[in-house]
Design a protein around this nucleic acid. Structure first.
Lengths: 137, 137
DNA sequence: GGAACTGTATCATTTAATATTACAGTAAGG
DNA sequence: CCTTACTGTAATATTAAATGATACAGTTCC
């Protein structure tokens, strides 16, 4: 699974814990252990979809824009790794009945698999992630 | 998703269509469009788990060992890409409550996700894949 | 106008996936 | 019993994907 997905969850959880003040990409990147540019990249995606707000310039950064209970892991999945389950089929022989059709058959099955996974991921919101993080402390 | 998974399905489907005679790794590799050594590697895994039989030497190759309707995609998933859904968390800061606990929280959620995916994949057997392939012809 | 940010493009580096080569072991058939 | 056609598997090379790093334009605040 794409690590952009976990990065997004990580960042949103961190922001959910400080709903009052902004966090810079530097602060988040230290917590997540990655390069600040990656944080900016991933979070700009979340911004475009209205999950958080940003502010440039001095004192700027990222801040939660909605309710942690309104964002599900499925929302984040769709943004960061839609199609990740899709099978990577190599160019197979068109002359063989299996080679010629396997890709399409698997594609439709995996479309269903992703939908199915979606039903599971919809059960978890950022609020629940934060609660679980707090419980472990 | 790991392409060993699709390779295994491809190979098994091909073998299911010729239950009477053996197929060599060369034949399968042409159909699947990959290197024969990879076929041998993936199929040796399937052999170890009793899904097919092999024979070395002249006239040897791979042959189905069980019923196509007895092998589900979940069986194959477990062999070829168990844990593939597991989030790739980077080393995050132990000093931050989020960084210190995110990994464990996500890990347990993804364990559940994989189980959930399993319920879906159990609905498909090699027999059904072969039927779908035939229908498309 | 300078300091502290985001936004984004580009290039470098690391890591994972896959292909290739090589060869030992096994079975069949002359 | 020797040759041919296979699997099994290790080692190495190559390619592709993920990630990191650098650079800099645009914004906001003081």
């Amino acid at each position: 699974m794409n690590s952009d997905f976990t990065l997004a969850i990580h960042s949103l959880s961190l922001l959910a814990l400080r709903p009052d003040r902004m966090a810079t990409s530097d602060v988040i990147s230290v917590s997540a252990g990655v390069h600040p540019v990656r944080i900016r990249k991933v979070l700009s995606l979340l911004k475009k979809n209205g999950f958080l707000q940003t502010k440039e310039g001095t004192g700027g950064g990222f801040i939660f824009a909605s309710e942690p209970s309104d964002i599900t892991l499925w929302d984040i999945y769709k943004l960061t790794c839609d199609g990740a389950l899709k099978p990577k089929c190599t160019e197979s022989s068109e002359e063989c009945i299996v080679g010629a059709n396997m890709h399409n058959v698997l594609f439709s099955i995996f479309l269903g698999a992703e939908e199915h996974l979606g039903e599971y991921l919809k059960n978890y919101t950022i609020k629940e992630i934060v609660d679980l993080v707090n419980m472990r402390q």
